[in-house]
Design a binder for these strands. Structure first.
Lengths: 186, 186
DNA sequence: ACCTGAACACCGTTCAAGT
DNA sequence: ACCTGAACACCGTTCAAGT
């Protein structure tokens, strides 16, 4: 029953595996068993394993950048927009693991291309918020780069140090508030 | 001639491979050929490939954290110390590629342990500088976490976007100066 | 104590043969 | 058009045999 498998089924399964165990967990035979197919069938839909990971990366771009930005554009007040962005960014562990795995792999040039696109769009989104708050274009750009860098880097700090900043007693909300204060100080 | 191969020879070769092509470039047979040994010999010195990568990680900890902190402790003035730290941090491409590869791999628990140690020491070093500048303990800690996060995240921004912040016309020195201004603003 | 080379295991990839 | 299962390649790992 149900229609045949689509490439998206494979990409989704790959993204799930990445969330659970990083890129190393993307094992074609394991995914095949999980979605009820065979290794051989995989190669009808994809050129190779790298193409599957690219598929997962594009899926990730859609959900964690395109859709996220669409949602947050609704929030008028720029500080409030940044606040909700950071809450959503730091609040989702599963998403965080995917970010870490995909962003830090410049191995495949096409995944690097997706990452570059995501980076550009996210930094532009941040710069826009800073500009609305009242910073000049170049100040806004600089702070956006620092803010995004901070976001990415915090994964590492938090991953290795579960009792680091946000959880060290104070709730995520307070941590994000402090962070935005620091980033928007003149 | 020369004495036999030491485990450190393997670790050094692995670190070199990581700098050139990331963790995926750590191929035992390739390293063996490069240092004039065989695959089989490798397994006399190391339990497995993961142990080799741990060896490389420990080597990296010594040169890029222990030795670095020792050097920079000499610089009395804390702002100056931060400045030199960032210059050295962002100025070395080879080192940057190693950082990216090792830090973002929570796969192996022992590498994760080294990364945790490195993170703790680096954040403490930064917090100390901020405290000397005159921030309270908790302010200094918070800014240290943000600063280190920024450092890590900038690799990604810069890797994907060669014409991003530092190279966008202005020299590294100016970029670092601006960054420190932002991080030390009250 | 340390090394070699052959063997095996795992998993990515290909492909002839099926429906 | 899509899938299967067997075959092969690559590389990590083991191990009996050497020095």
């Amino acid at each position: 029953m149900g229609s045949r498998l689509q490439p998206n089924d494979w990409s989704r399964a790959a993204l799930e595996a990445i969330a659970e165990g990083g890129l190393g967990a993307v094992i074609i035979e394991t995914l095949a068993t999980r979605i009820g197919a065979t290794k051989g069938s995989f190669y009808w839909h994809f050129a190779d394993r790298a193409a599957l990971i690219r598929g997962a990366a594009v899926l990730w771009e859609e959900t964690r950048t395109s859709a996220l930005i669409r949602d947050l554009q609704q929030v008028e007040e720029p500080r409030q927009r940044l606040h909700e962005l950071f809450i959503r960014a730091f609040g989702d562990d599963r998403a965080g693991r995917i970010e870490a795995a995909l962003i830090m792999q410049p191995e495949d040039p096409e995944v690097a291309e997706v990452v570059r696109r995501v980076t550009t769009r996210r930094v532009a989104f941040l710069a826009n918020a800073f500009a609305e708050i009242g910073f000049t274009e170049s100040e806004a750009q600089h702070r956006a780069v620092v803010a995004y860098g901070t976001y990415l880097g915090l994964f590492v700090v938090l991953a290795g140090n579960p009792n680091a900043a946000p959880s060290r007693g104070r709730p995520l909300d307070t941590f994000v508030g402090d962070l935005i204060d620091l980033l928007t100080r003149r």
